[in-house]
């Protein structure tokens, strides 16, 4: 009985690993497999390795520009959304901040979260068009902010609600001004939440496609998801290596960011204190 339980566990484990790990492995393998190995029966392990796809990506497809665009859009929108989102969430959860628009504001956030993103495309398109922004990266940036601020507010509201309020009362009595209270007590305690929300918002912005495909019109402004999409179609789907290399290249910055967020962001915000 026990033996069966154990082998069942191992079996399930293997299945899960295959389902989740194999596609990633296959992508990696494809990106370094020479072209002539891609026809007919494809071996599990590439017999020789090449970096030609990566080279082509940067020389022929101008991938570095896409990379730069993506970084720009993601990081700038992230910075804006974080500052506004975290502050808004704090103000919304604390009873001592009272203002009339509090309820409508809460409601607005819910609405933006509930409506499918596509619902905003037409009004946004009209706005961006009138403002003459369609030839720039700004629409991509703004649409990331539009989606991320409500998300951050939503997430952080529940986080702030769980922080014991006595700690803040204590700090106020200890003489902390509103700003000192926020930066020295609230932010450090919220660091794990902020780190999580930072990663998720960055990922959203990095992978954003729905809006970019509509609002970003000139190829010089293409972000990585848009560039990847063109790779898929142009060479009539035969150039798997290039697509795979693009996929890998789009994941690397994210990995770097996650590592950064885990190691430095939390430590930086909390002064190395929440490392438990």
């Amino acid at each position: 009985m026990k033996l069966f339980g154990k082998s069942a566990k191992i079996f399930t484990g293997i299945i899960l690993v295959l389902v989740s790990v194999f596609p990633s492995y296959w992508l990696l393998a494809m990106s370094v497999r020479p072209m002539d190995e891609m026809r007919g029966r494809i071996s599990l392990i590439p017999s020789s390795l090449t970096l030609e796809h990566f080279r082509n990506l940067f020389t022929e497809k101008d991938f570095s520009r896409a990379l730069a665009n993506s970084l720009q859009v993601s990081l700038i929108s992230l910075a804006f959304s974080l500052v506004f989102g975290v502050c808004a969430a704090y103000v919304l959860t604390r009873q001592r901040f009272r203002f009339r628009a509090k309820k409508p504001f809460n409601f607005w956030i819910l609405i933006v979260r509930i409506l499918p993103p596509v619902a905003f495309t037409i009004p946004l398109y009209t706005m961006f068009n009138r403002l003459g922004l369609l030839s720039t990266k700004i629409p991509a940036l703004l649409s990331c902010i539009l989606i991320n601020i409500p998300f951050i507010v939503w997430f952080m509201v529940s986080f702030f609600q769980r922080l014991p309020e006595d700690i803040e009362k204590s700090a106020r009595i200890d003489g902390a001004s509103e700003w000192q209270l926020f930066t020295r007590i609230v932010l450090p305690l919220a660091a794990p939440g902020i780190a999580a929300v930072t990663m998720l918002s960055f990922l959203y912005a990095w992978n954003e496609y729905t809006y970019s495909i509509i609002f970003v019109q000139s190829p010089k402004n293409y972000t990585i998801p848009l560039t990847l999409a063109t790779l898929n179609s142009e060479d009539s789907l035969t150039n798997f290596g290039l697509v795979a290399a693009g996929g890998i290249m789009s994941v690397l910055p994210v990995l770097a960011f996650v590592v950064f967020a885990q190691n430095y962001l939390i430590a930086g915000l909390s002064g190395g204190a929440v490392k438990e």
């Binding site: 006595d166 700690i167 204590s170 009595i173 305690l189």
Partner: peptide
């Protein structure tokens, strides 16, 4: 107000 307060929950700064 120059007062100090001790709370039931201690309310220490955990970090």
């Amino acid at each position: 107000r120059n007062i100090a307060m001790v709370f039931q929950s201690y309310a220490l700064y955990p970090h």
